[in-house]
Simulated assay, not measured.
Amino acid sequence: MTDANAVILRDFGGPEAMRLEPVQLPPPGPGSVLLRQTAIGFNFIDVYQRKGAYPLPLPTGLGHEAAGRIEALGEGVAGFRVGDRVATMNAGLGAYADRRIVPADKLVAIPDAVSDDDAAALLFKGMTAQYLLRRTHAVQPGEMVLVHAAAGGVGQILCRWAKALGAVVVGTAGSAEKCAVARETGCDVAIDYSQAGWPEALLAATGGRKARVVYDSVGRDTFLHSLDLAAPFGLVVLYGAASGPAPAIEPELLNKKGCLFLTRPSVFPHNADATTLRANAAEVFAAIASGAIVSRIGARFPLADVAEAHRAAEARATTGAILLVP
């Protein structure tokens, strides 16, 4: 058995519901590895799951992505060795830990040019951006895209990568400071959506041009405006709910707003098998190498201070990615 520490959620609730507890890990079974984690990524889905918005059987671990080194191999594991640097983002809950058992088919090798911190901070968010920009809608040069929460972890990646693909990038963010970050990240226009009249301000800034695709991770506060800001026959991609669930609509509204398309995708079905996972991860790592994705870690918290990390995220008090350090 191996001693480890893991964040356990026994009841849904606020950040204080999470507890770092000692656990004992058995040797890795067939097809699995023991991973010593060096960096853990935070994603807003962690907040939804902690609150019970996405109900889980309790007790449960939390967290979806981490980077580290393999300490032991289970029977039948091929393609990896003890000491290899690897990352995972689709191995089930439990990444909030200093060690864990992970199925080998959920691992991707980290290239030498990418640090553990960057892999943990960027993999989940980069894979989210990858399917949004390349699969949900293959962004083309000259198209206008609108990215809500453009100063956030995924938002910054979307903006920079879309710009590298030749798009005209329009962003929104929740303060003047965050709009400045969005512009630094690649937005041609950045509008503060905490200010009254922001949709009109956005259209004024674009000369009335609307977006071919709108990427909306905010939900309740932006969704209906997203429908107004999409061009006729455009696509609205709702992939998060940072401000709360988006309001229900009648399908006829999509017709009235310009024969729009609406989708609610997620990252996991886009990376459901090892071959697809590793191919998509390779595209993300190549984007990092080319500069289309740049690491911007906004805050680091010790794993023991995970509650403070969640509070900062919910208060929208950070820009860029949040990293947990075991």
Score class of each variant (00 low, 15 high):
Ala182Pro: 00
Leu146Ala: 03
Asp84Val: 08
Ala230Thr: 04
Val154Lys: 02
Gly41His: 03
Thr38Asp: 12
Val7Ser: 06
Asp112Thr: 14
Ala72Asn: 07
Ala4His: 07
Ala150Arg: 01
Ala309Arg: 04
Asp192Glu: 10
Asp192Leu: 08
Leu202Ser: 05
Ala182Cys: 01
Val213Thr: 10
Leu324Gln: 01
His148Arg: 07
Ala162Arg: 00
His148Tyr: 06
Ala78Cys: 13
Leu165Ile: 08
Leu253Val: 15
Thr136Phe: 08
Val325Ile: 15
Ala299Phe: 02
Thr60Phe: 05
Ala272His: 13
Pro232Met: 05
Leu93Gly: 06
Ala287Ile: 02
Gly14Leu: 07
Arg278Lys: 14
Ala87Pro: 02
Glu65Gly: 09
Thr38Cys: 10
Gly174Ile: 02
Asp117Arg: 11
Gly186Asn: 00
Arg183Lys: 15
Val23Asp: 01
Ala149Tyr: 01
Ile70Gly: 02
Gly166Leu: 06
Met144Thr: 13
Glu16Trp: 10
Thr38Lys: 13
Ile157Val: 12
Met1Ser: 14
Pro30Met: 04
Arg212Lys: 15
Leu20Ser: 06
Ala231Cys: 12
His64Lys: 13
Ala164Asp: 10
Glu75Leu: 10
Ala150Glu: 01
Ala113Trp: 04
Ala282Asp: 13
Met1Lys: 14
Ala211Trp: 00
Phe268Pro: 02
Val218Cys: 05
Thr319Lys: 04
Pro103Gly: 04
Ala150Gln: 03
